[in-house]
């Protein structure tokens, strides 16, 4: 790019990887070791017997923890904290859940279609009492499709940065500044892919609309849950979850 130096791109790439490493839990090696540690039949049944409200609270709790890590990832990204505060909030409000969904592929075992949840790997059936079978299935399908790309940690890191720094989000005040940062991230990502002979990856990434659809589906299901359990949300859901989705 004529607008940024090679050194600048190099620093940005290092920064994306470091931000990702410092804010992704558990580490990749640990996930690899634990990927066959699944819930027993009895444990799955115990989750299935939980009331819908309790299961929603648990999932909202885990999701909120993941989102807090995404906020930290954003804060460490070169250039993010130089954006105006309105735009930081706009990008996180629109993109945090999408980043969590991308990050989820790290903790997903495509061989038995399970995901790390509260300490062990769980299949879709564990989430039955949530009452949103279709949404859970779609999220698992998405994780499965990302796993099929066999992404490296560096590729996950760049994908997350690119999902977050999106100049097309509505209500941005300094759209051009966000677009410039996004452009630099794309240059750095392409450079990484060229070096690792993975240029073909870009054409195989899921379309952005798929992430957007999953996030809308989550909000719709939350609204359906609230109609069933009016008053449940203020009491037991994390305040950050309510702020982002309610």
């Amino acid at each position: 790019s004529p607008t940024c130096s090679g050194m600048e791109i190099e620093l940005l790439a290092q920064d994306v990887l470091r931000s990702h490493r410092e804010t992704s839990q558990p580490r990749a090696e640990e996930l690899q070791q634990r990927r066959w540690d699944t819930f027993s039949r009895e444990e799955v049944c115990a989750y299935q017997r939980k009331p819908m409200q309790e299961m929603w609270e648990r999932c909202a709790g885990r999701l909120t923890e993941a989102i807090q890590h995404v906020v930290e990832f954003a804060k460490r990204l070169r250039g993010f904290m130089e954006l105006c505060q309105n735009d930081q909030i706009v990008l996180l409000k629109a993109g945090a859940m999408e980043v969590v969904l991308v990050r989820m592929c790290r903790a997903f075992n495509p061989d038995n279609r399970t995901v790390l949840f509260e300490g062990k790997y769980a299949g879709t059936e564990l989430f039955r009492s949530l009452g949103c079978h279709e949404l859970v299935g779609s999220i698992f399908d998405f994780a499965q499709s990302l796993c099929a790309l066999r992404l490296s940690e560096s590729e996950v890191a760049f994908l997350c940065a690119i999902v977050l720094i999106n100049a097309n989000r509505p209500w941005l005040q300094e759209q051009a500044k966000v677009a410039r940062l996004r452009g630099r991230l794309e240059v750095a990502f392409r450079l990484l892919l060229r070096r690792t002979h993975r240029e073909g990856l870009l054409a195989r990434l899921p379309p952005a609309g798929r992430l957007r659809a999953l996030c809308s589906q989550h909000v719709e299901q939350l609204q359906a849950f609230r109609r069933l359990h009016p008053g449940a949300l203020p009491a037991a859901f994390p305040p950050l979850y309510r702020e982002l989705f309610a």
């Binding site: 807090q68 906020v71 904290m81 505060q85 909030i89 996180l92 409000k93």
Partner: peptide, 16 residues
């Protein structure tokens, strides 16, 4: 900003 009080706070904190 009042509507996004917690997000605002997380962004303000050095390390949250």
């Amino acid at each position: 900003q009042e509507k996004h009080r917690i997000l605002h706070k997380l962004l303000q904190n050095g390390n949250s």
